[in-house]
Amino acid sequence: MARSVTTQHKTIATIAAWIVALLIFFPILYTIITSFKSEQEAIQGFNLIPSGTFESYIEVQAQSGYFKFFLNSVLLSVGSTILALLVAIPAAWSMAFAPTKRTKDILMWMLSTKMMPAVAVLFPIYLIFRNLGLLDSRIGLMIMLMLINLPIVVWMLYTYFREIPGEILEAARMDGASLWNEIIYVLTPMAVPGIASTMLLNIILAWNEAFWTIRLTTTEAAPLTAFISSFSSPQGLFWAKLSAASTLAIAPILIMGWFSQKQLVRGLTFGAVK
């Protein structure tokens, strides 16, 4: 008796959840489907079965050199993440293992920089970038992305490092390990999973950043966010091409995101929800 109720309950829950999930996922699914249609097919009304042509993908590359923007997205997101890690790892390490009275204040202050609205400093940054010749340069944008994500990186690393038991360090010190050896042989192996998670989340955030990447670039350093935005003024039939460009732009990060659900929760809530 109880068992049949459970099965019935499970069936209803399954059906309801799948319907809702498919509805939420639908815009992405339909974009992927449309990317395999020809431009004529794409505007002929609702149709879930594409003819399976790759012509939109080839067109997007041929017309606009799609690969260059893709490469910029990879360089900017990975580059800014590595820069941020280089700066943040020592800071997070010292805050986790040698905390002082002010550690908490510093962490809170770092978080508060994240709350400054980007538009408020749009013109000064634009001016500084122009005068330093950094407009539309990859290195300038890399520094920019590093700065806006640095608080999250420090925070995430800090919450991971704090979980490494201090006794292990003491034991190593008792055995005569120098500070340097302690970092290389004891801490680093234990910290690698946390660093990897942080890296993953930060690449996602940098890849999808759509204010500075659009405003500080024109052609040379423009990543996919800027390229896709150029589709905002349509010219002729572009539904299938927009879909192909969009599919390529979101696919790598979507797959990375699926693997980083837990880290995402932790990183974006600053350790408040685990």
Partner: peptide, 27 residues
């Protein structure tokens, strides 16, 4: 709730968050 395919449902539901804003808006 207990259900079949919970992992996939989760993946489908979380996906829009990873779509970059210009793509989401233009789609």
């Amino acid at each position: 709730q207990p259900m079949w395919g919970q992992g996939i449902v989760r993946i489908l539901v979380i996906s829009p968050f990873f779509v970059m804003p210009p793509v989401a808006a233009l789609v």
